[in-house]
Computed example of a mutant assay.
Amino acid sequence: MNKDRKEELIGCFEGIDDNAKMIIYPLIDNVVFIEQQLDDLKKLPFVNINPKNSMQQKPTTASKMFKELNQQYNNSIKILISVLLKTGEDDTSPLRDFMSIIKEKYAND
């Protein structure tokens, strides 16, 4: 597991209460794991091409796994961001302001 990335993410949640940390920290472990898996999958081909007919192409298992892991990753990040935004309602920082703008912008997607 990438300890630097894990510490970076944990640092974002230093201000939350201990009960929330018990829930967030395992999620952070999962996020770091999924990031590593996605990086590994990016090195693999995503399309199999029929050597006899290049117009016939099939997605590989790696592309399917990437899609599923990427969805899990995005959902986990959304949870982490929502916790971060809720715990920091009293505090205002440029990052929280920016994340609020992004959240509002993509809320309809």
Rank of each mutant, 00 (worst) to 15 (best):
L9I: 03
E14K: 10
T87D: 09
K64Q: 15
E14Q: 09
L27W: 00
P94N: 13
S76L: 05
S54M: 11
K103N: 11
P45L: 03
K86I: 08
I24E: 00
K86S: 11
N70V: 01
I79P: 01
E104R: 12
K21C: 00
P45M: 03
K105V: 07
A62Q: 09
Q56F: 14
K21D: 04
M22H: 13
V31K: 06
T92Y: 07
T60S: 06
K67M: 15
Q57D: 10
I28R: 00
N108Y: 12
Y73S: 01
L41K: 03
K58M: 12
P51W: 08
I79F: 09
D18Y: 10
F46S: 04
I77G: 02
K6T: 01
I102S: 11
L69R: 03
N48A: 15
D29E: 12
K3Y: 08
M22G: 08
I16N: 01
L85S: 04
M99V: 13
S76M: 07
D18N: 10
E68Y: 10
I102M: 09
K105P: 05
D90F: 06
I79A: 11
K67R: 14
F33L: 14
M1C: 10
G15S: 11
I24L: 00
N19Q: 13
I77Y: 01
N53R: 09
N75F: 08
Q56N: 14
N75I: 14
E8F: 06
N70R: 07
C12I: 08
I23G: 00
I23P: 00
I77M: 05
L27K: 08
D29C: 00
K86E: 14
Q72F: 06
D97N: 13
A107P: 02
D40V: 08
V31N: 07
Q36K: 10
Q56T: 11
L41E: 04
K21F: 03
M65D: 15
I81V: 15
A107K: 08
F33R: 05
I23N: 00
I23C: 00
